[in-house]
Design a protein around this nucleic acid. Structure first.
Length: 843
DNA sequence: ACCGACACTTAGGAACTCTGAC
DNA sequence: GTCAGAGTTCCTAAGTGTCGGT
């Protein structure tokens, strides 16, 4: 169980503002005082990492009021009072005595049984900023980066043209140099570790400049995303190669058509895994499998899943995997080269004349859909994608990539307002899959920087926003009160917005879609949240909240609502975001997560020991990172070997401590005066019990025996190869006998341990050795702490997506820690735009 | 106001690769 | 050279939020 310390609001308001900020960013003025009335709320919260609970799905959906008497805008006091809703003992809270809507609409039925899903209720009414705000935002001075505003976010949506053969031919005619050589001959335009401070350049076709620092540009974010785009399209997975191994059905072999066999093989690969054991997965798989059997076999015996035996196919797969593992060095080299050739071809494109990395250029191969959590469609067959289903997006003058022989592209378009290179639809949920540029590309970098700048804008609007919602917590209008309460939860606990989901998806929720059953209240102000969030990760937390928030939550849960009803029945992410846009241009619910993550991180970094070792500084960094990961509920499953690994580290630690103990005892014996100058040598070693030492020494005997045997065999092998006489067995026997003697003396307590240094070593040398061991011990201890603390928490997600990289860069500069210690190569590439900030930058 | 389509970000786990101890 | 474990990359599911049409 971990304790999360969140920043207090007073901390949050004490933020510095740097000179390159745009001043004019908050779109609303606040009449309420700037002091946050939440100050009194202790924000410690207990988090447990239990995963994957099952929650009942709501039978009742959000009640949309059509009735005039129960409208959102009507003051609560005017609503009719349901006697069941009346609370007897809360006279101080007159507003909360008002009833909620008595009507809750019946669930929306999914009208469509087909695979192409329709989202049941997706409220999306777009609203942005007033023209005035948009204008204001555009006029704001831009030094380093343009402010992120809704106005800037807005992009014109153009109709996609269908590529006519004539247009395609024209495109081909327009292509100048062969693309392969053009792309291959250029290095990526974005370099992570650049020492070059080249002047910025415009985004036009200036191919020779390798260091394109787009972040130094004053680019208009409103325009098209690119001017020219050339690429090789997508790579299709190889055709299925049948193995002809029959499925065993009721003990009898069933020879399958290759299409049927392919699907059986998909399942065979998952036998014994969580998916393979999941009943829904099995049922969905079997239903699709049987359909294929019907299609390809006029007569077949397949009737029930439980009579299918996939073990022969599985054995074949295991054999293949073993073969792959046993590949020779040359074979591995060849396969690596083949992969590199493919990566070189499809992995890069030319964007506005610059070579940029493409992300996922591979078309997803057919497979069984692995939905997460209790996904009703998990196990269904995800079909093979054909070129005819793929749309290519490419520059008008670029050569259109060749589709695989005998095929043609579904469509070819030239849409400069989007960033994808190719797109197709998958058959399970009807979702669109895109091929985008890689994370380190200029396009991704630009939107990343925009995202963090927007979150940074919130730093200076947050006090006003908090005052506003704190005031609204007592609003007479139910919709407003719900909105304020939800906003409090989003702000304080980093909850996601919580869009409504359809019945053919896993039952997961976010803030707006919370149901009454997900929140348990305990007087006077304790709340327990327990629900499945994104990816069916359980969010379980008990915490104190603002007293008024607690009262509101109680009000929102009141009868006639039942546990399956929406907690916030007058609120949707759309209405919430619409409101947020009035408080700050471009503000949406998700910005709070980015803002709070970065803000908490920056505050936590203040705990870095300025005079500590590098390892200690990095530990402080990772701890700050962990606070954020806990706040955002980024979890991971505990690895299988975790406990064993911890025991190993513990033993390693004790073994080093034992070495140090021996040296210290020796020093005390030969130079007792030393302890005046070096009192640490008189200190005992924690954790070193006589029992542990004995068992450690005995294990050492065992391993020494093994080592001696292995060395003996190895040496003889070498001698044999050289044609020389072998070492006699007696030599090994003598060694073993010596070890056995040692073992005996350990057992009967007469053993005198050997010193890790020779007897006549100078005391200075021994002190030096002790200090090295001390350093080693400190490092192992840090490792141990980190390992334990990271057991169920994934740090990478927040590092990649939520923490402004400029905070990390600044920290490295301030504490003199090399950036490579905290950002790996991929992160350094992703965040090139952030590397130039100086050590005084603050979020 | 509502809906589906769309475009993009965020997410955890599997697969693969590197590294250091033996 | 082998192996385990750490670190990294790949894969693709699952979110959020916007847009145009009705």
């Amino acid at each position: 169980m971990r304790v999360l310390q969140q920043q207090s609001s007073s901390q949050q308001s004490a933020v510095s503002t740097s000179a390159d900020d745009n001043g004019d960013r908050c779109g609303a003025s606040f009449s309420a005082s700037s002091s946050d009335s939440d100050d009194g709320v202790p924000l410690s919260a207990r988090i447990t990492n239990n995963r994957s609970a099952t929650n009942g799905k709501s039978s009742l959906r959000r009640g949309n009021d059509d009735s005039g008497s129960d409208s959102d805008s009507m003051p609560l006091s005017k609503l009719s009072v349901d006697p069941r809703a009346k609370r007897a003992n809360d006279s101080s809270d007159s507003e909360s005595d008002q009833p909620l809507s008595n009507k809750v609409k019946a669930p929306k039925k999914t009208t469509n049984g087909s695979i192409a899903t329709t989202t049941a209720v997706k409220r999306a009414k777009r609203e942005i900023v007033s023209p005035k705000d948009a204008k204001k935002a555009k006029m704001a001075p831009t030094l380093k980066a343009a402010p992120a505003t809704a106005a800037i976010d807005k992009k014109p949506r153009i109709k996609k043209d269908t590529a006519t053969p004539a247009a395609n031919a024209a495109s081909r005619r327009g292509s100048a140099a062969p693309l392969a050589s053009k792309i291959a001959n250029r290095k990526p335009s974005i370099k992570a570790e650049s020492s070059v401070t080249a002047p910025s350049q415009d985004g036009s076709e200036d191919s020779d400049n390798e260091e394109f620092k787009w972040w130094l540009e004053n680019k208009d974010n409103d325009g098209p995303k690119w001017k020219s785009l050339e690429h090789f399209g997508v790579l299709f997975p190889p055709e299925y190669e049948p193995h002809r191994i029959p499925l065993s059905y009721k003990g009898k072999p069933f020879k399958m058509h290759s299409e049927v066999e392919e699907v059986a093989t998909f399942f065979a690969a998952l036998v014994g895994t969580d998916h393979g054991n999941n009943k829904v997965f099995q049922d969905n798989f079997f239903s699709d499998f049987k359909e294929l059997c019907d299609k390809h076999h006029a007569k077949h015996p397949i009737k029930e899943f439980k009579s299918c035996d996939f073990s022969s196919i599985r054995a074949h797969l295991d054999g293949q995997s073993a073969k792959r593992k046993a590949m020779t060095k040359d074979e591995k080299e060849t396969s690596k080269k083949e992969k590199m050739l493919i990566d070189e071809k499809y992995g890069f494109c030319m964007l506005d004349g610059r070579r940029e990395k493409v992300g996922n250029f591979r078309i997803e191969p057919p497979a069984l859909f692995r939905g997460r959590g209790a996904h009703p469609k998990t196990g269904m067959l995800k079909k093979r994608v054909l070129p005819e289903q793929v749309t290519i997006n490419i520059g008008e003058n670029a050569k259109i990539p060749d589709p695989p022989p005998g095929h043609k592209w579904g469509n070819v378009i030239h849409d400069t307002t989007v960033t994808w290179l190719a797109m197709w639809k998958e058959n399970i949920n009807g979702n669109t899959k895109y091929v985008f540029l890689a994370a380190g590309s200029s396009l991704k970098g630009q939107s990343d920087m925009k995202k963090f700048d927007k979150a940074r804008n919130l730093v200076r609007c947050i006090d006003g926003i908090r005052s506003q919602y704190t005031k609204d917590l007592r609003s007479d209008i139910m919709a407003e009160r719900q909105r304020a309460t939800a906003l409090y939860l989003i702000d304080r606990f980093a909850l996601r917005a919580g869009n409504e989901k359809s019945d053919d998806e896993a039952d997961t929720v976010g803030c707006c879609s919370l149901r009454c059953e997900h929140v348990t209240l305990e007087a006077p102000n304790i709340v327990n949240f327990d629900f499945l969030g994104k990816d069916s990760i359980r969010y379980e937390r008990t915490t104190e909240v603002d007293k008024q928030v607690w009262k509101n939550l109680r009000l929102f849960q009141k009868a006639p609502k039942t546990k399956n009803d929406m907690l916030f029945d007058r609120l949707t992410p759309t209405t919430l975001n619409k409101h947020l846009q009035t408080l700050m241009p471009g503000l949406t619910a998700k910005v709070f997560r980015t803002f709070n993550a970065s803000f908490v991180f920056q505050n936590q970094l203040a705990n870095t020991p300025a005079n500590g070792t590098e390892a200690e500084k990095i530990l402080a960094y990772n701890r700050a990172n962990r606070e954020v990961a806990v706040l955002c509920n980024h979890q991971r499953t505990v690895s299988k070997g975790f406990q064993g690994q911890m025991t190993k580290i513990e033993d390693k630690l004790l073994a080093v401590r034992y070495q140090r103990k021996l040296l210290k005892s020796y020093l005390l014996e030969v130079a007792p005066d030393l302890k005046k100058k070096h009192p640490e040598i008189a200190k005992s070693e924690p954790g070193l019990t006589a029992k542990w030492i004995k068992s450690f020494l005995l294990v050492t005997c065992e391993t020494d025996c093994d080592k001696a045997r292995k060395k003996f065999e190895r040496d003889n092998e070498k001698l044999k190869e050289a044609g020389e006489a072998a070492i006699p067995e007696s030599k090994l026997a003598a060694q073993i006998a010596e070890i056995n003697e040692r073992e005996k003396s350990i057992k009967n307590g007469t053993y005198t341990p050997e010193l890790p240094v020779s007897k006549n070593t100078h005391t200075d040398k021994i002190l030096e050795k002790i200090s090295k061991l001390t350093e080693r011990i400190a490092n192992i201890e840090v490792d141990k702490i980190e390992k334990d603390e990271n057991k169920t928490t994934a740090l990478s997600t927040s590092k990649i997506n939520y923490i402004d990289p400029r905070i990390s860069v600044t920290w490295c500069k301030k504490y003199n820690v090399p950036l490579e210690k905290i950002f790996n190569k991929a992160l350094r590439e992703k965040f090139t735009w952030a590397l130039d900030v100086d050590s005084t930058w603050s979020f």
